[in-house]
Design a protein around this nucleic acid. Structure first.
Length: 483
RNA sequence: CGGGGCGUGGCUCAGCCUGGUAGAGCACUCCGUUCGGGACGGAGGGGUCGGAGGUUCAAAUCCUCUCGCCCCGACCA
């Protein structure tokens, strides 16, 4: 172990030694989030929130480009509304927070703090939709929701979290299905392009689908420890909610019909995914597109550096900013350059720019990539466009690396012994034939802790007989241990 | 919700077994020298030991209850 590695051990647990602790250490040391006094709740600190804001911008743009508009619905939902859809209540009842009092007075009807907004939105949609001309109705909201979880993890599962939830109503079943898949595709484009997080699009099994949905689709991402993370979901709600909330309209054929709905969401959990998919023993590695700072400049304070080095640094900073590159100049005098290197690596800044007297003299700077640690001298002339290109290269490299990792950790097998053996650890995905029975799914989970993450969208015929019961296989399912 | 572990300056932890009134390293403040991979010297500030109750002349230390965090399982974004 090198000296520098030894120094890191003091601050964060190595990833290979204890992935969970590493994860928590990175979040706290990089100042992404902190525990709050309320159990299961966390504070998203400025650096973590800046990442979320970048994600929001990138996703919000896509949501709007596909014709949706933003609105805001209330936090509180009357108990009676939540209870209207039977499967929905049943799914969420164990984890809702109740408001029973206003001041000292007990409320006539209890309110739930939204765990999701189908009920309140459905109620409003019922009032807003009269005619086929009111459709499609395409609304998204950015909000917080509360789910009273028993076990919580920073970002991955907290009592309160931030998300975006789209709620749409369509004239026909086909349109709703098209919308469901369209938004799943938007999520894939978003996570892969912005987060450099390759995902698997697919259909959730009956036992894993959203409470009240007809069908649930998901994108799943493989984390660095071989566990899968559900990174986003898109639901075709059919007419389930439309019927109980009376979302009906007069159709083109003059008959009254129920609307066909979808809902879809991604959450701050994605930040957790970002950490776990790219990070290393030195800390966070952020894809440039969602890095609050894409470049950190570290001047080497030698001699009269404020007069000789700093002006060059500031000039370069201005040039980079003019190109739209997010850059910070760390000219603090209380820390040595070495200290700053370690600190900004921990915080995942994609590119470090070192500039000292030697560089000024030779009209160059030192660039160091966070992902590969490659160190290269680059002339000041044309530096901006060079960095611009390099950031793109880093973004792509992170994605390719994650794809390679996923492929290396995907096993296809029709052999149950091999299947079991693989799930003794956390191997990633195992793709195996499944007969479609919930019993088999449950038995596999009991035996191996692995669940079906999802099923391919355009399934080829199964590669063999069901890995559990040996009967005719219906489809090859993606199994994994998950978060 | 079950099993296990842990709560002592901001952080990591020692002290607890065998009660006697709190300590180290890092961090922080000031001064000086430094600075191309977590610098060095000197001088300082900061905790009543997660919380409540009990035992005792005396509790960080023993007992009871309680809260929180972490890990592993059952449920979920």
């Amino acid at each position: 172990m090198s000296d520098q590695d030894a120094a890191f051990v003091k601050t964060i647990t190595p990833r290979s030694k204890d992935f969970s602790r590493w994860y928590t250490d990175v979040i706290r040391r990089a100042e992404l989030a902190d525990y709050s006094p309320v159990k299961g709740s966390m504070v998203i600190r400025p650096y973590g929130y800046a990442i979320w804001e970048l994600m929001q911008q990138a996703l919000d743009r896509r949501i709007k480009e596909t014709g949706h508009v933003n609105a805001y619905f209330p936090l509180f939902i009357p108990e009676s509304l939540l209870k209207k859809e039977a499967a929905h209540v049943e799914g969420f009842a164990p984890e809702v927070a109740w408001v029973t009092h206003g001041g000292d007075e007990q409320l006539e009807e209890r309110l739930v703090v939204r765990p999701t907004s189908e009920a309140i939105i459905g109620t409003m949609y019922s009032k807003w939709i009269q005619s086929w001309r009111d459709l499609p109705l395409l609304i998204n909201q950015w909000a917080n929701v509360v789910r009273w979880e028993k076990v919580t993890r920073l970002f991955l599962r907290t009592t309160e979290f931030l998300w975006q939830e789209g709620h749409t109503v369509h004239e026909t079943e086909e349109e709703a299905q098209e919308e469901t898949l369209k938004m799943l595709g938007v999520y894939q484009d978003f996570t892969e392009t912005e987060l450099a997080m390759p995902v698997l699009k697919g259909l959730k099994t009956e036992s894993e689908k959203f409470a009240g949905a007809l069908r649930t689709y998901s994108i799943e991402a493989l984390m660095g420890d071989g566990r899968a993370l559900q990174a986003g979901t898109s639901h075709n709600l059919g007419q389930n909610f439309a019927k109980v909330f009376d979302i009906s309209f007069q159709g083109r054929d003059k008959t009254m019909q129920y609307g066909w709905q979808t809902s879809w969401g991604v959450t701050t959990r994605l930040i957790g995914g970002l950490i776990m998919i790219h990070g290393d023993d030195s800390g966070l590695i952020l894809p440039p597109r969602v890095a609050p700072y894409q470049v950190v400049m570290v001047p080497i304070p030698r001699g009269d550096w404020r007069a000789t080095v700093l002006p060059h640094a500031e000039r370069i900073k201005g040039e980079l900013e003019a190109l739209g590159i997010r850059v910070t100049l760390d000219d603090r005098e209380e820390h040595s350059p070495g200290w700053k290197y370690a600190e900004w690596e921990l915080r995942g800044v994609p590119l470090r720019l070192e500039i000292g007297p030697r560089d000024v003299k030779s009209e160059q700077v030192m660039l160091v990539r966070r992902d590969t640690r490659d160190k290269l001298p680059v002339p000041m002339d044309g530096l901006g466009s060079y960095i611009d290109d390099l950031l793109r290269t880093i973004q792509n490299a992170l994605f390719e690396k994650a794809v390679a990792f996923r492929d290396e950790h995907t096993l296809r097998t029709t052999d149950r012994a091999e299947f079991n053996e693989h799930f003794e650890g956390r191997p990633g995905y195992v793709v195996s034939p499944w007969c479609g029975s919930a019993d088999c799914e449950a038995e596999i989970k009991t035996a191996t802790q692995a669940t079906i993450r999802n099923l391919p969208l355009d399934p080829a015929p199964a590669s063999g007989n069901c890995i559990q019961c040996g009967k005719l296989g219906e489809v090859d399912a993606y199994f994994a241990k998950s978060y």
